[in-house]
């Protein structure tokens, strides 16, 4: 007895094989689409993790940066104050000079 294991084999009609290949192709294209979606999801994971890491780092660093910013601001304010003071001093000096000149005129010297 030869090929007894193949006793129940029977070649299907060619149109039937074509039908199956066509129907299955629809399923396979869906599977490929799912694979691409999964791959994109896996790519998104490190990207999201990076963004999250950046967010956390920014959150941790921000008080110091705020402090630095406020220090800068203070410096600016103090600089502005100094300038105003300088301006005031200049004005005072000018007034003194004017008064001196005026005095000179009044005394006639």
């Amino acid at each position: 007895m030869k090929d007894i294991k193949n006793l129940f084999d029977s070649t299907p009609p060619s149109y039937h094989s074509q039908n199956i290949l066509r129907e299955v192709e629809k399923l396979l294209s869906e599977k490929r689409l799912q694979q691409r979606r999964r791959a994109l999801a896996w790519l998104a994971v490190p990207a999201l993790a990076s963004f999250f890491g950046l967010y956390v780092w920014r959150k941790q660093e921000s008080p110091q940066m705020d402090f630095l910013a406020s220090e800068d601001m203070l410096q600016t304010i103090s600089d502005e104050n100094n300038m105003e003071m300088i301006a005031d001093l200049d004005l005072l000096e000018n007034l003194d000079t004017l008064e001196k000149w005026n005095g000179k005129d009044e005394t006639g010297s």
Partner: peptide
């Protein structure tokens, strides 16, 4: 095939279509 490869399905189908249809 689980990943959607058409060529792999065609190969498996060609190999066993007679057994499946016959059964």
């Amino acid at each position: 095939i689980a990943k959607g490869d058409s060529k792999s399905f065609a190969a498996l189908f060609e190999k066993y279509k007679s057994k499946v249809y016959g059964t």
